[in-house]
């Protein structure tokens, strides 16, 4: 098997940790490589386009990615992604606190 095949079984959670927060209907999820050596892989795996494309029904707005290269961190800002936010959402988790695991649950290789 190629390394691609090997990576296909690995999740973002195997190389990174993350935390989600909310402001209104906007979610932000910071994702940090456990090992700086994996930051390039993390950056290649988690493009804003991929995240927007993977959860089209959830993320209605723009996805912006900020990079903190020296800390091996990425910060994703997902607009209109909290089903109306804490004011409106009927999701049990109306703050989207659990959404860090939406990202961590993704396979490193998309296909």
């Amino acid at each position: 098997m190629s390394e691609i095949g090997h990576n296909a079984r690995r999740l973002i959670r195997d190389i990174a940790h993350a935390r989600a927060g909310d402001k209104g209907n906007t979610s932000n999820i910071s994702v940090w490589a456990n090992d700086p050596a994996d930051f390039a892989l993390l950056k290649a795996a988690l493009t804003p386009e991929r995240i927007k494309r993977t959860f089209p029904a959830l993320i209605k707005g723009r996805v912006t990615r900020y990079e903190l290269e020296h800390l091996s961190g990425l910060n994703f800002v997902l607009e209109e992604a909290l089903e109306g936010g804490v004011n409106r959402s009927l999701n049990l988790d109306s703050h989207g606190k659990s959404f860090s695991y939406l990202i961590l649950g993704l396979p490193i290789e998309e296909h």
Partner: peptide, 15 residues
């Protein structure tokens, strides 16, 4: 560093 970094960008948009 991991606990501090996660909190560094908690509810932050543009760092």
């Amino acid at each position: 560093p991991a606990t501090v970094k996660e909190q560094l960008l908690y509810e932050v948009h543009d760092p």
